[in-house]
Amino acid sequence: MQMLGSFAEFERAVVRERTQAGLSAARALGRRGGRQPKFTPEQRVEIIAMLQAGRSIADVSRLFRVHRATISRIAAAHRTATTQDVP
């Protein structure tokens, strides 16, 4: 039983090493991990413009077929970015 445990630990270490090597190689090629963004930068600009023009978050979310929270996060990120830019 102890031999089996040793082999399992060794195999796990090898898998981990290969995974780390693969992630490092991907980063070297310019790839990033994580989920792809829902909206392109152009769509984000359009969403902010609609909100500034007076459209409600609910209207914009229906138009883009996403949850209201998604639009709210984009608006909050924009507000944070604009307040940090102002000296």
Rank of each mutant, 00 (worst) to 15 (best):
residue 2 Q to W: 00
residue 2 Q to R: 03
residue 2 Q to M: 02
residue 3 M to I: 08
residue 4 L to I: 07
residue 4 L to A: 06
residue 5 G to V: 07
residue 6 S to T: 00
residue 10 F to I: 01
residue 10 F to Q: 03
residue 10 F to E: 03
residue 11 E to H: 05
residue 11 E to N: 08
residue 11 E to A: 13
residue 11 E to C: 08
residue 12 R to V: 02
residue 13 A to V: 13
residue 14 V to R: 12
residue 14 V to E: 13
residue 16 R to E: 15
residue 16 R to Y: 12
residue 18 R to V: 07
residue 18 R to E: 11
residue 19 T to F: 10
residue 20 Q to C: 04
residue 22 G to C: 04
residue 23 L to C: 01
residue 23 L to Y: 07
residue 23 L to H: 06
residue 24 S to H: 03
residue 25 A to T: 10
residue 25 A to Y: 04
residue 26 A to L: 15
residue 27 R to S: 05
residue 28 A to I: 09
residue 28 A to W: 09
residue 28 A to P: 07
residue 28 A to E: 15
residue 29 L to Q: 14
residue 29 L to G: 05
residue 29 L to I: 02
residue 32 R to S: 15
residue 33 G to C: 07
residue 33 G to Q: 13
residue 34 G to H: 12
residue 35 R to C: 08
residue 36 Q to T: 04
residue 36 Q to D: 04
residue 37 P to R: 13
residue 39 F to G: 01
residue 41 P to E: 06
residue 41 P to S: 06
residue 41 P to H: 02
residue 42 E to N: 11
residue 42 E to C: 04
residue 43 Q to I: 06
residue 44 R to K: 13
residue 45 V to G: 12
residue 45 V to A: 15
residue 46 E to Y: 02
residue 47 I to T: 05
residue 48 I to V: 15
residue 48 I to A: 12
residue 48 I to Q: 08
residue 48 I to C: 12
residue 48 I to E: 11
residue 49 A to M: 11
residue 49 A to N: 15
residue 50 M to F: 11
residue 51 L to D: 05
residue 52 Q to W: 05
residue 53 A to T: 03
residue 54 G to R: 07
residue 56 S to M: 12
residue 56 S to N: 11
residue 57 I to A: 13
residue 58 A to Y: 09
residue 58 A to D: 13
residue 58 A to H: 11
residue 58 A to E: 13
residue 62 R to I: 00
residue 63 L to N: 06
residue 64 F to S: 00
residue 65 R to P: 00
residue 67 H to M: 01
residue 69 A to K: 08
residue 70 T to M: 09
residue 70 T to V: 15
residue 71 I to Y: 06
residue 71 I to G: 04
residue 73 R to S: 13
residue 74 I to Y: 00
residue 74 I to D: 00
residue 76 A to H: 14
residue 77 A to D: 14
residue 78 H to Q: 10
residue 78 H to V: 04
residue 79 R to I: 05
residue 79 R to G: 02
residue 81 A to V: 06
residue 81 A to D: 14
residue 81 A to P: 10
residue 84 Q to E: 12
residue 84 Q to S: 11
residue 85 D to V: 04
residue 85 D to I: 02
residue 87 P to H: 00
